[in-house]
Amino acid sequence: MSAQAETDAGPRADEAPPKPAPARRKLTLRQRMWRERWAYTFIVPGALFFLVFAYVPMLGNVVAFQDYTPFRGFGGSTWVGLANFEAMLSDPEVLMALRNTLIIAVLQLVLAFPAPIALALLLDSLMSARVKRMVQTVVYLPHFLSWVIVISVWQQVFGGGGLIAGVLDGLGVSGFDAMTNADTFKLLVVAQTIWKDCGWGTIIFFAAIAGIPQDRYEAAAIDGAGAWQRMRHVTLPGLVPVATLLLILNIGSILTVGFEQLLLQQPMVGMDAAEVLDTFVYFRGVLGGEWGIATAAGLLKGVIGTVLVLAANRFAKRLGGEGIFLCRH
């Protein structure tokens, strides 16, 4: 500690006298932090938030290695090594939940991720600012509805007693019910996600579009590029950094496929179609009291997410992008 303290004292002492400008690059991290101390102060609340609500709770993952019950607590529960992981991996429900989670995740990545980009481009191409603003407001709105409301609305439209079923009934086609069809359920989930969050997702892409220098469009127009070519060669490349960043971040949470949305609809289509890792954790842990196995499943999900986000980051860097860990000196 004392050696550390001495080292600490050094740079601070160096800072005061106006020595012939030492090269900036030689400043240590500590020196740079001190210089930017006010900026760092602003980070404190955010860092505390993550510390208290994200990092400290991570310690609870020890439950995955225990035969845990709440009253006995972390200290009083017996340690069981990897028994929970063994039980989990031999449990057909976990495998089913993992399969469903992955299918929904891939569908969301392929269908739901590009949707806001397409919508942003579409809206950007609208000429009337008034119409654009109106459409934006309308498409943002579903984001603020809870899943309970969203699913009720979908039930009223696509359910067995809903609007479409009623119209089809009138046309002599009976039995339409998109809400209880287990075969198409995963597509339904993705469609609901797109409906709810696609509009909201356009905000960030609008910002990116607004950040594209106008002179590029002008230069392209002078070179004879039409509207389509301007979008393809100016707008889309301008969106790539943001899209890459979002893609990497999304991959990190790829296995989080909508707990509430699936829990609410599971009774309508059954576990085989709608059991995902998050609902498994809820049923087995929170309701079933098998905290160890449930936590092991949650931990597995977290580990997969971390590996994926690091892999995607590396991949993005190889492709020439910046990744998520931006370093600017």
């Binding site: 429900e93 039995g175 209880t180 069809n181 287990a182 599971q266 009774p267 289509v269 059954g270 576990m271 049923f283 087995r284 309701l287 079933g288 009291g289 098998e290």
Partner: peptide, 23 residues
Amino acid sequence: FVTKGAQLGQLWDDFERGVVTGR
């Protein structure tokens, strides 16, 4: 039953309702 009852019950309920409605 205590730990898996809720899930098994749901599985059963789903199948039963599925048969009744023709699914």
